[in-house]
């Protein structure tokens, strides 16, 4: 797998993976670590919020079908708090209907990828989200 260009920040960006499927977590963790990111895992929405409060990550990779609080609620919760404005959100879910995708973006998601996903596309999207826009770089 080709290595993406290294991100600008000094420390490697942190990605929080919120999913309840251990095997999917394994594959996502592998892909992100390989791309040079730090990963953290939450098995439920509640877990995710706890981690957010302690140490907000740069990106949340969010499943929708979660036990308890679902992915949309987590997304909404994050966007309702201005202190987490800089946290990027990527929905990574088996829910692929147009209505669900629109809902995801409407709630403030920055990207929406449906499962099963292409690993290459997933890594590119993560990279795109974690690379600051061109104007900011200069």
């Amino acid at each position: 797998m080709p290595q993406p260009e290294s991100p600008v920040p000094s420390h490697p960006p942190r990605v929080l993976i919120v999913d309840d499927e251990p095997n999917i977590i394994i594959s996502i963790e592998f892909l992100l670590r390989q791309a040079g990111y730090t990963t953290q895992v939450a098995h439920s929405g509640e877990d995710a919020l706890r981690i957010l409060q302690q140490e907000p990550p740069d990106l949340v990779v969010l499943d929708i079908m979660l036990p308890g609080m679902d992915g949309f609620e987590v997304c909404q919760w994050i966007r309702e708090h201005s202190e987490w404005n800089h946290v990027k959100i990527m929905m990574l879910t088996a829910k692929g209907r147009d209505a669900e995708i629109s809902k995801g973006f409407a709630l403030g998601a920055d990207a929406y990828i449906t499962k099963p996903f292409s690993t290459r596309h997933f890594v590119e999207e993560v990279h795109r989200l974690l690379t600051p826009p061109a104007e900011d770089r200069i």
């Binding site: 797998m1 499927e21 095997n23 999917i24 394994i26 594959s27 996502i28 592998f30 892909l31 088996a94 449906t114 499962k115 099963p116 996903f117 292409s118 690993t119 290459r120």
Partner: peptide, 14 residues
């Protein structure tokens, strides 16, 4: 159905 497929595809690609 998509859930196991996701793992299968991701891990196969890896």
């Amino acid at each position: 159905l998509r859930t196991p497929l996701t793992s299968i595809r991701a891990l196969t690609e890896i």
